[in-house]
Structures are given as structure tokens and as C-alpha cells.
Design a protein around this nucleic acid. Structure first.
Length: 811
RNA sequence: GCUGGUGUGGUGGAAUGGUAUACACGUUCGCCUUAAGAGCGAAUGGCCUACAGCCGUGUGGGUUCGACUCCCACCACCAGCACCA
């Protein structure tokens, strides 16, 4: 018999499976489909162990599903636009397109070593015109529906990458790619009105799809819906009216001062020509500058300046001083805040600038002051004059009075109910080369003109000077940028900016279905056959970016009617994978030099062992450093599987009860564990069964057969090889998944634990037929010598018996 | 500060109210071998006077016949968000 040498068998089968298109399915008529999706890859050049973890482990699930007669669709592709390609290309003098496409070729080869059921026929590469044509098409549709628009706004600007960044791409004030400090800059940019979908993107407590709670909570917090009122005010002695958002309307009677954001245009109106102008505008400039320098650094210094103005506060008839304060966010709400000094920050501000507050608002007893955080205390304990609650609300609970107060405010016309979101519209303009062109033409006569649909795609020109110069590289591509206006035929220029790559990844899972379709995103036949995605694996880091954007896109496309009637969410189930860290315990990155390339390990132990080890290493959401030490263990396991051949009985051997019991138990365990994304315990169950088999003199064909079938999804190569020896038939991957039989799960006798006062003192083997008879079991338990010792001189007060598990004698 | 999560042997981890530490790594001992490796077998939570005992799942309390598991309070760590009125 040959030794188990993975390199002798793995390439051979990989080649054969590919030639035979063993894993291909018919996308037009997948009757019992299973769409398995893993977040596609950025083509950085080399596959590392993290890619294996992300793709090879879900492949195990996909393979089981195939054997359960599902037509499993497990596509793979590349998220191929984006800054790293451009930066790497600039550094090495290679064109981003060439760099990217050659990386993709290389990575496809490396993916091949995994032995996954990927079908590369249905791949997507987002930087190819056939793909991004549909980016542009969706953009035009959004423009048509008012979801895409051009606006001026302060944006996060990375001076190094020379581009605008989305909020989600700013990490602690730094660019997510290069780590350069981000500054604020006002620029014109294209936005997608995701806020229009804010309410529909919010998760209910009981969603119809199975997405993890952390992602749902995270998205809900990010959307940040808060319900309150917009109160209306007039500035004293001036014809200025404004609104302010208040999410705690319960305190509307308690207002003692007002603060405005420094950026607010009204500030100048208030102080123009007054003695306060110089001081206030100086303060505004100072804060603006500070924010420009490092907006995202947490600045606990709360600063402000009095405008000299007051507002007429209708509900209480009081005059309320108006201040400008550093901490007010212009972009949130109306940029004006009602300060009733019930929260710590407002209180600190008032104290710092001696703004008179009623002293009793804050209790002197520090323990009592703690309660102020709940606001409830304020509401019930504030003195007259500060918190004059309308009669009808006196003595009622804080939360329950909330809606009545909003009604009251509306009735009295002090203001209007308002729903405010933290979520901002999504800026998609990027001042870089390597992205999908935005299909817009600027004409002196006609203004902003969308590129007509029949002219799509607007192809990204190849020959462009893409080194950053402070303006978009495409603006320098003379023969590309200058075009005839599609409207009037006059001289016009194309939009020189490109799209955020998160646009590309917001709908790629639809394109997998129909990647060559030239007339629609995907045919309705295929959409109907394969959507929604059954399970979507990906990283927890995409909670606020990709998974929110893609839900938005799906809802938009659904509203547009291009999806048919597929429901609100694109994936029935979302599963987060963990992170394999570098051996040094930090995230793998080329710059740290701690990237683990699995090539060596595959050479030494084989793809099967690496796959198995990645399953076995821990729960699938584990975040842990790569420790190749355990690889030897799973390799050893495979070797013992290989050696089972020697134990194969010459003919059908009668299996004992124990053999059948462990076999069916393992079938049940592996099936259920894979279904529940518990790969590690599924492998452990196989190991236990193998330990049993190895202890036996002979192994029956039936056992070996079932064992190989269960192992096949984890280790597709070695099981295929052994299958040939066992069955002389191709292929194991076209066999049906074994089923367990309940009758073999029942044991004829059961181990029952005897406890005295909850402590284990003995065990007892009990025949099935007397298992349900409490009296008999109790008698047997009391007879036990070990138990006798604990019972002498004591009385048994109570006996608890859980049939088949435990008997507890209470003395 | 807010939100979500996690705390179990030397290590990765298992156990969702019923024998805590499955499965594996590592370590130690033995067999085999000229030797090494591989392979095979055994032991491996701590303590003790070491086979009739005690302690033990971050800490303290509670519920229960029985708690890693449920409840309350706290501590530590991880992740995300963070001046959101």
C-alpha cells in the first residue's frame, strides 16, 4: 500500500474535477438551490491563510449541501477597483489594470489549490466594463429617482491619497488605507440618498432573516433614529426665526440657554454690526480652524461665546440667551440646541460661563446626582420656574409621558414632531483613477447631463497619468474628458471623478448569476431561481459599510422593479467569520510583514489537512493568531484515515450495537454541526469515531464508506482517493449524504449518575426497560456501596430522578 | 461614555440546567529502532497523609435537589460607535 502523500493525490483530483465540471450547476433551473456566498476578495496579489479560512471552511458546508442534493451555487470573484492597486501601481510603475489582472490570474490559481467547489464560469471582476456598466446604469436610475444628487459639503479629505473618504472609511481620524490624518474640506460631490431608506434599513426586533444581533444593533445605532420635536423660535428684536431639534421633549419647559454650532450661517446674522461681532466671529474662525486640523480628535474642551442675543421663549415667556458653542454639530438636527442643563455637558458649559441655572436643578447629594443621568429625576424634582410641567403631565412617568408631550407641543404650535437620523447621505465621488467613471457630462448650455443609457458603459481610459496632482487624474485625459453633449451636441466635459468601490460591492452577488448578460443586471429567470442568498459569510468589519450599503442597493433595485418579488433582504442568513491574525498576534498586513502564506503548509501537509485544521481550530468566529502547531495533529488524523484501508474486512462484517451507535451518532452530530456552523465540533466527532475504528481489529465496508462520506466535505481529495479503492467508482462527491437512523441512537443500557446532595458519588448502568421506573432505579442506587457510606445515619428526604440521566438523593 | 461580545487546564477549545475540561496541541513515561524520526501504548486541572477526601469554569451574592449554563452586582479584556442635544 502506498503511503499517504497529499501531493500525489491532490493536484490529480483537482484537475479531474475541473475537467469534468463536476461542480457546475444549471443556473436557469436550479430547483433545489443553495446560494452560498462569501465576500469577494480584493486582488492584493497573494492568497493568505485568511482567504483559506474565509473560503475553504464555507466550502465544507457547500459540499455537504451538494451531497444533500442541493444545487449549490458558490461563486467567487474580485473586488478589483480601488486605491491599493493605484498606489501599488504608482510605486512599481505598472498600470493598475495590468497589476490587478495579473494578481487575479495568480490568485485564481491559488484558489484552485483549495479544492473548493467554486465555479469560475460565473465569476465577476468589478474593474471590467461588462461589470461596471451596471454600476453606471444603477447610478443613472438613482439619478432619475432623485436618490443620486450632487451637493456641496464638508468632506473627509485624505491629503495623502488625495481623495474624499466616506465616514465609514475614517478610523480614529485617520485614513483607513494609509493612516494619514484626515482633514475637512468643502467639495462638490455626488451623494446617494441612503437616508431616504433609513427607516427601511432599520432592523426590527424580530427580523424575518437570520442576521446576527451585533450587526443588527450596530446598523441600528449607526442609522441612529431618534424621535423628537423641532421647536420653533424667534430671536428677540430681530426678524429671525429658526427651529431646534429636541429628542427629549419632556424638558422643553426647562430651557435655560441655547447653543448654536459655529458653522451655522445664522451666527453672523445675529452678531452683524453689534459689539459682539468681533469676538463671536473670531471664536467661529478659531473653532472652524481647529475642526479643519483634526476634526476627529476628541476634544473635551467645551468652549463658547455669548452672542448678545436672546430668543423669545413662547412656552414660558422667558428670554433665553443664545451662545455659540464648540460642541454643537452643525450637520446634526438643526445645528441649534436647546439646553436645559439636565445633562452633564450642558451643565458643565453653564458652570464654565456662569450662565444662571436654578441651583436645585442639580441635587447636592452626589448619590442623588447620579440619578440625574436618567433625566427622570429632573423631571420630578425640578423647582417651579425651571421645569413648569403642564398640569396634565404632573406625577406621570418620564417615558410614558413622552408622546403626550409631543402631542401637546404640536397642539400648542410650539413645534412639530420630527424624526432625526445620525446616518448621512453616502458620498461616492472619489478623485482617483482606478474606479468606475461616473456617467455624467457637463455642458455649458445644458448643465449636468446624464450619459444616455445606450452609451454605457463609459469606459475608463487606459492611458492616463494617474499620479495624484490634487485634481482627478481623468481630468488630464484630454481625448477622454472632452465630449459632445448628448443633448445639444456642443462642447462638453465628462465627470472626471470615479465611484467609491463600495458601490461596486453593493450588488455583485446579483451579477454572479448572469455575468455575461448585456441587457440587464441579471435575467429574471435566474434571479427567481437563485435569489435570495441562502447564507452569506463575511467579516464583522463590514457591519457599517458594505452590508448596510448592499441592503440599501437591494431595496432600491427592488423598488425599481428589476428584481421581481424577492423580498426586502438579499441574504437569508449572515455569518461572521473570525480573523486569523499573524503569528505576532496582530492583523496580517504586508507592511507588518506578518502575512502567512499557506503554500509551505500545503506542500508539507496538503490542502485537506489545512482545510481540516481551519475547521478544527475553534469556533468559526474565532479571532486568534495563526499557530501551525496543530496542523500536525490533523495531518496525523488523515494518516490514520488512510491506514484504515489495512483494516478493511474481507467481507461484510456484522456490526455490533456499539459500532452502529457511534456511526449514527456521528452522522447526526456532523450533519447538525455543519448546519449550525460548528465546524470544530464536527471534526472532533469524526476524530472520536476514528479513534473507535482504530481500536477495532477489522473495519467493515459500511463503516468505512460512511466515514469517508462524512469526511468528504472537509477533506475532498483523500476521500476521493480512498473512495476509488473502496468502491472503484467516481466520484465520492456525487454520492448522497449519509442519513442517521434513530433506532441506532437508542442504547440498550444507559449510564445513570448517582448524586448525593447534588454531588456525584457513583454511576450505574441501567437497562433500557427499567429506565422509566423510578422506584427500581432508586432502590438500585441506594444499594450501591459507595452510596451506602453517605446514607448511613441519614434519612433520604427527597429523590429527584431524571430518567436516563441522573438520580439525586437529598439527605 | 454608549452598544454588542468574551472570560473554562500549560495552549486552541468542548459542554445552553444533570458526570466540567470532549477533541486536539504540548509535556512526561514506556514500546519499537543501531540511532533519529515516524508509528504504537499510557499518564496529564490543583491540593492532600495520593482509590472512601477537599477545592476548582474572572469576583461576590442569589435561584435550584443540582449552575460554566439562569438572575443581580462588580472586575478584566475584545470589537464597534463616540460632544447626536
Amino acid at each position: 500500500m502506498r503511503k499517504y502523500i497529499p501531493s500525489d493525490i491532490e493536484p490529480k483530483w483537482q484537475k479531474k474535477w475541473q475537467e469534468d465540471k463536476l461542480y457546475a450547476i444549471d443556473l436557469d433551473q436550479a430547483a433545489k438551490k443553495y446560494y452560498l456566498l462569501v465576500e469577494f476578495t480584493y486582488p492584493s496579489g497573494d492568497l493568505h491563510i485568511g482567504h483559506w479560512f474565509a473560503f475553504a471552511v464555507p466550502d465544507v458546508l457547500g459540499r455537504m449541501k451538494r451531497m444533500q442534493d442541493y444545487q449549490v451555487f458558490f461563486p467567487n470573484g474580485f473586488d478589483a477597483f480601488g486605491l491599493p492597486a493605484e498606489n501599488a501601481a504608482i510605486a512599481r510603475g505598472v498600470h493598475p489594470r495590468d497589476w490587478t489582472l495579473s494578481n487575479i490570474e495568480n490568485m485564481k490559481q491559488q484558489f484552485g489549490l483549495m479544492g473548493a467547489i467554486h465555479d469560475w464560469e460565473n465569476s465577476v471582476i468589478t474593474c471590467l466594463p461588462g461589470y461596471y456598466k451596471w454600476n453606471q446604469w444603477i447610478f443613472l436610475k438613482m439619478l432619475e429617482k432623485g436618490i443620486a444628487y450632487k451637493g456641496r459639503a464638508l468632506a473627509n479629505w485624505c491629503p495623502n491619497c488625495q481623495t474624499v473618504l466616506a465616514n465609514e472609511n475614517v478610523e480614529a481620524g485617520e485614513c483607513w488605507r494609509c493612516g494619514t490624518e484626515v482633514v475637512q474640506k468643502e467639495v462638490e460631490q455626488w451623494f446617494l440618498r441612503i437616508t431616504e431608506y433609513a427607516d427601511r434599513l432599520l432592523w426590527s426586533d424580530n427580523p424575518t432573516v437570520d442576521w446576527p444581533k451585533p450587526i443588527r444593533e450596530g446598523q441600528n445605532n449607526w442609522i441612529g433614529r431618534s424621535e423628537g420635536v423641532n421647536l420653533r423660535f424667534k430671536v428677540k428684536d430681530m426678524d429671525i426665526h429658526f427651529e431646534m431639534f429636541d429628542s427629549v421633549p419632556q424638558t422643553f419647559m426647562a430651557q435655560t440657554f441655547t447653543v448654536i454650532a459655529p458653522e451655522h450661517p445664522m451666527v453672523y446674522e445675529l452678531v452683524k454690526g453689534t459689539e459682539h461681532e468681533k469676538e463671536v466671529m473670531g471664536f467661529v474662525e478659531k473653532i472652524k480652524k481647529k475642526k479643519m486640523m483634526n476634526k476627529f480628535e476628541i476634544d473635551r474642551d467645551i468652549e463658547g461665546v455669548f452672542t448678545g442675543r436672546y430668543l423669545e421663549y413662547t412656552p414660558t415667556g422667558k428670554s433665553i440667551p443664545i451662545w455659540v458653542a464648540s460642541f454643537v454639530i452643525y450637520e446634526y438636527g438643526t445645528g441649534v440646541v436647546n439646553s436645559s442643563a439636565h445633562d452633564e455637558r450642558d451643565f458643565a458649559f453653564a458652570k464654565k460661563y456662569d450662565i444662571p441655572l436654578h441651583p436645585v436643578m442639580f441635587p447636592k447629594d452626589p448619590k442623588e446626582a447620579e440619578k440625574v443621568k436618567n433625566l427622570e429625576y429632573c423631571y420630578h424634582h425640578a423647582p417651579d420656574g425651571i421645569l413648569q410641567e403642564p398640569e396634565e403631565f404632573k406625577g406621570r412617568r418620564w417615558e410614558e409621558v413622552r408622546h403626550d408631550i409631543i402631542d401637546y407641543i404640536e397642539k400648542k404650535r410650539y413645534g412639530k414632531r420630527k424624526i432625526q437620523y445620525h446616518l448621512h447621505d453616502w458620498s461616492i465621488s472619489r478623485q482617483r483613477y482606478w474606479g468606475a467613471p461616473i456617467p455624467i457630462i457637463y455642458c455649458d448650455n445644458c448643465g449636468t447631463v446624464p450619459v444616455p443609457e445606450e452609451d454605457l458603459p463609459v469606459e475608463l481610459p487606459y492611458k492616463v497619468d494617474y499620479t495624484p496632482k490634487g485634481k482627478p487624474p481623468l481630468a488630464t485625459a484630454e481625448d477622454w474628458i472632452n465630449v459632445k453633449c448628448p443633448n445639444c451636441g456642443g462642447e462638453a466635459k465628462r465627470e472626471a471623478e470615479t465611484m467609491d468601490t463600495f458601490v461596486d460591492s453593493s450588488w455583485y452577488f446579483l451579477r454572479y448569476l448572469d455575468n455575461k448578460n448585456d441587457t440587464e443586471i441579471a435575467s429574471s429567470i435566474r434571479l427567481k431561481a437563485l435569489m435570495p442568498v441562502d447564507i452569506y459569510f463575511g467579516g464583522a468589519e463590514h457591519t457599517l459599510g458594505h452590508t448596510l450599503y448592499s441592503r440599501f442597493f437591494y431595496k432600491f433595485l427592488s423598488d425599481l422593479g428589476v428584481l421581481g418579488n424577492l423580498g426586502e433582504e438579499y441574504a437569508k442568513k449572515r455569518v461572521h467569520h473570525g480573523v486569523i491574525l499573524g503569528p505576532d498576534g496582530s492583523r496580517m498586513s504586508k507592511s507588518r510583514g506578518n502575512v502567512v502564506n499557506p503554500d509551505e503548509q500545503i506542500k508539507e501537509y496538503g490542502a485537506d489537512a489545512v482545510r481540516l485544521y481551519l475547521c478544527f481550530i475553534g469556533p468559526y468566529d474565532i479571532v486568534a493568531p495563526w499557530n501551525p502547531g496543530g496542523l500536525g495533529g490533523v495531518y496525523h488524523f488523515l494518516q490514520r484515515v488512510w491506514l484504515l484501508q489495512e483494516k478493511l474486512g474481507s467481507q461484510a462484517e456484522k456490526l455490533g450495537f456499539k459500532d452502529l451507535n457511534i456511526m449514527h451518532k456521528t452522522i447526526k452530530k456532523v450533519t447538525e454541526d455543519l448546519e449550525n456552523i460548528k465546524f470544530n465540533t464536527a471534526v472532533a466527532a469524526l476524530m472520536e469515531w476514528l479513534n473507535h475504528l482504530c481500536r477495532k481489529e477489522k473495519v467493515s465496508k459500511e463503516e468505512f464508506r460512511s466515514f469517508l462520506l462524512l469526511l468528504a466535505p472537509f477533506a475532498p481529495h483523500i476521500t476521493e482517493e480512498l473512495w476509488q479503492i473502496l468502491e472503484a467508482k467516481y466520484s465520492i462527491h456525487q454520492q448522497s449524504w449519509p442519513k442517521f437512523d434513530n433506532k441506532h441512537l437508542q442504547q440498550d443500557q444507559v449510564l445513570v449518575v448517582i448524586q448525593v446532595n447534588g454531588k456525584v458519588r457513583d454511576t450505574l448502568l441501567i437497562q433500557n426497560d427499567i429506565l422509566s421506573n423510578k422506584e427500581v432505579v432508586e432502590k438500585m442506587a441506594k444499594k450501591s456501596e459507595k452510596i451506602q457510606k453517605f446514607l448511613t445515619g441519614k434519612t433520604v428526604k427527597k429523590t429527584i430522578y431524571v430518567p436516563g440521566k441522573i438520580i439525586n438523593l437529598v439527605i
